[in-house]
Amino acid sequence: MSNRPSTLEEVARLAGVSTGTVSRVINNAPHVSKKSREAVQRAIEELGYVPNTAARSLATARRGAVVLAISSDDPALFANQFFAEVIAGVNAVIEETDLQLMLVLAASERGRSRLTRILQSRAADGVLLLALRENDPLSKIADEGQVPVVHGGRSLDRTPQHYVDADNRGGARQAVEYLVSLGRQRIATITGQTDQHAGVNRYLGYREALALAGLPDHRVVHGDFSEASGVEGMARLLDEHPDLDAVFVASDAMAAGALKVLRSRGLSVPEDVAVVGFNDIVTAQHTHPALTTVRQPIEALGREMTRMLVRLIDGEQPTSLILPTELVVRESA
């Protein structure tokens, strides 16, 4: 055996794991599989590796917390099933670690200042960002915090280094293609927020599907993903385009509002107007009629974001991830 001291990288290479996993085994951290732990221990013994005590001290000098920062100050946020499912996914992974979760609503100046203080004081080991808008100041605050950052979704002005997103464009395209396959030719849409990546890409998916089918795409109103904007948007569409025979709605909450308006106008769903939503939150199964929608794995989004952040904290370099979507056919289309 060489007299040269073995390195952390050599242990990782022999064990077939990342250097972050080696560090977690050395520091007796949780969330390491039995197989990986045993492989690291064998490699340490074979190489005669002696951990650097200074490096080990630095590795364990964590605050033991991560921040979930949401670009919203809406008091109804916690009643929003999308955010509730994302938070459930985040918490499920946090519970498998020794980390604590801090939630910051940071659309206001006060919320952003709070996040800045947390990061400047090194009170957190990493940040999860959610619901960012175009040119959102949260991105800059997180980048300047010098801790790992994972984005839930992407923003319009930049593609972050580490993110987890759903296939918004492909899911929307599939939804509209399905409506076309039913023989619908006057297909409208209620978009999500056009300063958010998800809202824009669901709109682009709608336009692409209609372009491929040779159908017009001018029956459009813009919403903000809320049920109230679905009510307002559907009323406007019917006033401006009374001949429409289908509508793709960029969120299930907006679709629930649209169904209420169609019912109040005496229109039958799906006979007069077919409706497809997006997300597949629990409400989609209980609307009247039950909502055909695009399922995105919302809780998985929260889980994968958090797993990615934990790996970054451990010194690994995971790749970004786009989760698949799936059309769920029910009674509304």
Score class of each variant (00 low, 15 high):
residue 1 M to L: 08
residue 7 T to H: 09
residue 14 L to F: 03
residue 16 G to H: 12
residue 21 T to E: 04
residue 25 V to C: 09
residue 27 N to M: 11
residue 28 N to M: 04
residue 29 A to H: 13
residue 34 K to M: 11
residue 38 E to I: 09
residue 43 A to K: 08
residue 44 I to M: 15
residue 45 E to L: 13
residue 46 E to Y: 02
residue 46 E to L: 13
residue 54 A to V: 15
residue 56 R to L: 09
residue 66 V to P: 10
residue 69 A to H: 03
residue 70 I to W: 06
residue 71 S to N: 15
residue 72 S to D: 11
residue 82 F to W: 05
residue 85 E to T: 08
residue 88 A to F: 05
residue 88 A to S: 13
residue 96 E to F: 04
residue 97 T to C: 05
residue 104 V to Y: 04
residue 109 E to D: 15
residue 109 E to I: 05
residue 115 L to T: 04
residue 119 L to T: 11
residue 120 Q to Y: 04
residue 124 A to G: 02
residue 124 A to E: 07
residue 125 D to I: 09
residue 126 G to A: 06
residue 133 R to Q: 13
residue 134 E to K: 14
residue 136 D to C: 03
residue 147 V to T: 12
residue 149 V to Q: 11
residue 153 G to T: 03
residue 154 R to T: 09
residue 154 R to W: 09
residue 156 L to E: 04
residue 162 H to I: 07
residue 162 H to M: 03
residue 164 V to S: 10
residue 165 D to C: 09
residue 167 D to T: 01
residue 174 Q to R: 14
residue 187 I to A: 06
residue 190 I to K: 01
residue 195 D to E: 13
residue 203 Y to T: 08
residue 207 R to K: 15
residue 226 S to N: 03
residue 232 E to W: 01
residue 237 L to V: 00
residue 240 E to D: 14
residue 245 D to E: 08
residue 249 V to A: 00
residue 250 A to R: 01
residue 254 M to I: 03
residue 259 L to V: 00
residue 260 K to M: 12
residue 263 R to T: 12
residue 263 R to Q: 13
residue 266 G to L: 09
residue 268 S to Q: 14
residue 274 A to W: 11
residue 274 A to R: 12
residue 274 A to V: 11
residue 283 T to Q: 05
residue 293 T to K: 00
residue 297 P to R: 07
residue 301 L to N: 03
residue 302 G to M: 07
residue 302 G to P: 08
residue 304 E to A: 05
residue 304 E to Y: 12
residue 310 V to D: 06
residue 316 E to V: 05
residue 317 Q to G: 02
residue 318 P to Q: 06
residue 320 S to W: 07
residue 320 S to T: 08
residue 332 S to T: 04
